[in-house]
Every structure is written in structure tokens, then in C-alpha cells.
Design a binder for these strands. Structure first.
Length: 475
DNA sequence: TCTGGGGTCCTAGGACCC
DNA sequence: TCTGGGGTCCTAGGACCC
């Protein structure tokens, strides 16, 4: 990362040639990491999740290996159900008489280790592309327009014109004989192989002239896939896919579309955009464009986070002490993380989920940004009062309206966190005592908070990858 | 399927201001 | 006094993603 950040000199509006965008998606990443550490797990059904350790009562599958998926185990499935479909190997659950073949391995989530592996992957990605947008721990977009091209590769040799990359794709899509073997495909293969070699885990890669098509392409042939969608073929590539294959179409939107008689991406592309807009708002229009292969979004590094939160499930309870204790612990953790990242927050909120799955959120904004763990706790508890008599199955605490103070303050924050993570907030804090939240806030209003009405802080989403803006660390 | 945890973005209504 | 329009901020909820 060179420091060449030139706000205001972006090239929007310039008519650019076709871009080459990769979407790199690690295959059941957590499971792959576990296998990297313990090769014995290779080829075996493997479930990574939380909640099945002794003493746990709630939990879900984070990742199931493809072998485990054959038993019907899926991501986000309650761990109890996963265990029913695929008993744990070597436990009482899988007692005598059970075929070993009908059991699988279970591993708890070890995020720290996965982050290490993800770091190796990221090193490769940043080495291979000028612009990388890390979407999550196991997923990223690369703009490699300046590193490769859509030109046909090599010697135009005839017989090799079809590529593995397009196997399994509908005939009307991707590289037909004429478009086969682009330089972009070769480069994607190179990236994929480097990831495998240097990080030790498999990835699927989608190659397309825009982000949304690349995203769909990486999904189209998992695991270990490489799907290339050259310019001009995006709409025909997408057309036969179900609407749910489009990024941004979940169960609700899928149903809404189905009610309109729209089942495939091709149907979306053919539908009147205004009809979609009437049903789905702006998203409908956007969906229409994407389905037709239009997506102008540039690949940009991810900006700073907009909120930090922690939540935790518990056996449904109305016990006030238990609820308060939980919220206090969550508040402390959120505040700690905020301080570690050197960020101030101006809004504090809670989430209370009542059975069966009734999500309530409450939030309160402060007059100015703070770094004050005690205040997070007291506001969160105050907001929790409303649910005193309610049974809850999940509680959460969130801070938002984040303020990553520029330069000096950010440095100070980092320094503080490093030196003494336990100290009370020391800057830009209200002077009031901490006994009563209402009093605090009122006092503060009277006092003199930093009136940051309009700090024209650059939109985080548009920040260049300068300094700490390049997330590396969170996710 | 009775549903984990950490996020993002969007929308709608109300308060408030000019 | 039954009533305009525009803008911003706040809260709550919802859809979606990995």
C-alpha cells in the first residue's frame, strides 16, 4: 500500500474498458483450516460449530464439510439437529453398532487460527492484485484489470479451445470455444494455485467484468471451482440460474419475485424494472440491472466498520439478575473492542430476542462520541429495563455511529489500549458521575461535548486504503 | 430447521427546524 | 389555525450476507 491517496481524483465518469474482477471464495473455510491442522480429518465428514461442548445448550453449525453435507448437515443448523443427522464419532452418541461411516468429526470454532490462515490467503491476494476488497474472513473481490486482460491466451491452438473452467455451466454461458482460454482465466488459475500452495486451503474463483457476476461465478462450481464469464456473456450466464443465486436475493425476495412469476435471473432481466421497483423499491431496480449484467460498482477496499456488537444466546429466561449480568458482560466486551480499535461511539443499543424469535432493538444516542465502558454498561442496562418482565432467549449490545478519530486521537486511543486497557475513558468524556445515566447525559449536554454536527468525515466506504483503513484485523 | 454471531444497508415514521 | 414543503436526525425493524 503506497500512500497515494488522492481524494477527489477518482476516475468516475471515465469510460473504461472492461474490467477484470475476481471473486475469491474459500471452500468451507473453517473446515479446510481444521484439516490443514489435522490431516486426519481430510475426506471425512466434518462439522465446525459451537454449542456441542459439554455444558453448552445452544449452538449452530458454522461450517459443514461437503462430506457432512451429504448427511444433510448445513450451515446455521442447530447443533442438536446436526448431531441427529450425523452422530459424533467416538462418543456415546455413536455407540456400538454404529457404522463409522455414519459418523463424523466435530470441532469447535477456533477463530484465531482461522484468522492466521486467512492472513496467509490475504498475503497472496494483495500480492496478486492492486485492489482487494475483503468481504469476510473467507471471501474477497480483486480488481486485476491492470494485471491481466480478457484477451485470448497463448497460441490460439485449436483443440484446447474448451476449458475445464466452463464445465458444468449451461452451454450458453461463459467461454464458448471462441472465448476460451483468456489471459484472465490463466491468471485466476495462478491465484488459485498460489492460495492452495501458500495458505494450504482450497478456493473457488469467479472471473467476470463486474463484482456481482464474479460473485455468482465463484459460487457456480464449488468446491475448487474456476468459472469465467467474459464480457458480453454475463446476462446469458446468469439467465438460467434461480433468482436466489443472485447476490442480495434471500428467502423473502425470492418469494416476492416468485409471486410475480419470476423464477430465474433471466426472468428478472426480462421483467419491467418499474414493476420490480414497485414491489421491492430501489433494490428491484438494482436487481434488474445486475441480472442484465450491469454493475458499475468499483472494487474498493473495505472501509472502517460502522458498528460493533456482541450478542449471546441463553436458555430463555425472565430472571432479571441473569439478564442484567449478561448485558453487562456484553457491554464490557463491546467497549473493550471499541477501545482496542481506537474508536469512539455515539450510539449505544441493545437487542432482546423474545421467544419464539421476536427481535427487539433499542438504542440511545449521546450528544457526542465517547469511549466510556461504564457508560456503555449503564445505558445498555437502562435500555434493558423495558424488558424486565420479559423472557428472552438472546441478548445483545451494540455501539454505532462510530468515530475513528483522526490521527492524534486515533494514536492516543491505540496507545491507551495498549498501555492500559482497563483505564476509564480519558478523552472527550462527559464529566458527570456515573451513577445515573439520565443525569450523565443531561450533565453532558449542559457541559460541553464536542459538537461534531458536521464533521465532513469522508464516507468510510470511500476511504482509500490508507493507514488503518485497510481492515486486515477485523473479520 | 424452532433459528449462532457479527455485520451491512434500507425504509418508514416521528421530531424538529426553517 | 386543519395546514406547505424541504431537509436532517433519530429510532425501530427488516432483509440479507458470511
Amino acid at each position: 500500500m503506497d500512500g497515494g491517496t488522492l481524494p477527489g481524483t477518482d476516475t468516475e465518469g471515465v469510460d473504461e474498458p472492461d474490467r477484470v474482477v475476481f471473486h475469491v471464495d474459500m471452500d468451507c473455510f473453517y473446515a479446510s483450516c481444521e484439516r490443514l491442522r489435522d490431516p486426519e480429518l481430510r475426506g471425512e465428514p466434518l462439522v465446525v460449530g459451537m454449542g456441542y461442548e459439554p455444558g453448552d445448550t445452544v449452538g449452530a453449525v458454522a461450517t459443514a464439510s461437503y462430506e457432512a453435507r451429504e448427511f444433510g448437515v448445513e450451515s446455521a443448523m442447530p447443533i442438536s439437529e446436526a448431531l441427529e443427522r450425523l452422530p459424533r464419532r467416538g462418543t456415546a452418541d455413536a455407540t456400538a453398532g454404529e457404522e463409522v461411516g455414519e459418523t463424523g468429526y466435530y470441532r469447535p470454532v477456533d477463530l484465531d487460527f482461522y484468522k492466521e490462515v486467512a492472513g496467509d490467503v490475504k498475503d497472496v491476494l494483495h500480492d496478486c492484485a492492486d485492489v482487494v476488497r475483503e468481504v469476510s474472513i473467507d471471501e474477497a473481490y480483486l480488481d486485476v484489470t491492470d494485471r491481466t486482460a480478457w484477451d485470448a491466451a497463448g497460441t490460439g491452438s485449436g483443440p484446447e479451445a474448451t476449458t475445464e473452467a466452463v464445465d458444468g455451466l449451461p452451454p450458453s454461458t461463459a467461454a464458448g470455444p471462441a472465448a476460451a482460454r483468456t489471459l484472465a482465466e490463466g491468471y485466476a488459475r495462478h491465484v488459485k494455485e498460489r492460495i492452495e500452495r501458500e495458505a494450504g486451503v482450497p478456493a473457488s474463483v469467479g472471473v467476470a467484468p463486474n463484482m456481482s457476476a464474479a460473485k455468482v461465478a465463484s459460487d457456480a462450481d464449488k468446491p475448487d471451482g474456476l468459472v469465467v464469464v467474459p464480457p458480453g456473456t454475463v446476462a446469458s450466464f446468469l439467465a438460467p440460474l434461480p433468482t436466489a443465486a443472485l447476490h442480495g436475493v434471500g428467502p423473502v425476495t425470492e418469494r416476492a419475485l416468485a409471486d410475480l412469476g419470476i423464477e430465474t435471473a433471466g426472468d428478472v432481466a426480462a421483467a419491467d424494472p418499474e414493476t420490480l421497483a414497485a414491489e421491492l423499491g430501489d433494490r428491484g431496480r438494482e436487481l434488474s440491472r445486475r441480472a442484465r449484467g450491469e454493475d458499475d460498482r468499483e472494487v474498493t477496499p473495505r472501509g472502517l466498520p460502522k458498528s460493533l456488537s456482541r450478542e449471546s444466546s441463553l436458555p430463555a429466561t425472565a430472571d432479571e439478575a441473569e439478564k442484567r449480568e449478561t448485558v453487562a458482560a456484553l457491554a464490557a466486551d463491546v467497549a473493550r473492542r471499541a477501545r482496542e480499535r481506537g474508536c469512539l461511539y455515539r450510539t449505544i443499543g441493545i437487542k432482546a430476542v423474545e421467544p419464539p424469535f421476536d427481535v427487539n432493538t433499542r438504542a440511545r444516542s449521546l450528544p457526542g462520541p465517547v469511549d466510556d465502558p461504564d457508560l456503555v454498561e449503564s445505558v445498555a442496562l437502562d435500555l434493558l429495563d423495558e424488558f424486565d418482565d420479559d423472557r428472552v432467549r438472546k441478548l445483545g449490545v451494540r455501539v454505532s455511529k462510530l468515530d475513528f478519530a483522526e490521527s492524534d486521537q486515533a494514536t492516543l486511543a491505540g496507545f491507551e489500549a495498549g498501555e492500559d486497557g482497563d483505564r476509564g475513558g480519558t478523552r472527550r468524556e462527559h464529566p458527570a458521575s456515573r451513577n445515573d445515566v439520565g443525569a450523565q447525559i443531561t450533565d453532558w449536554i449542559g457541559g460541553e461535548p464536542r459538537t461534531d454536527d458536521d464533521e465532513p468525515a469522508p464516507d468510510p466506504a470511500e476511504q482509500d486504503d490508507e493507514g488503518q483503513a485497510s481492515l486486515g484485523d477485523w473479520s
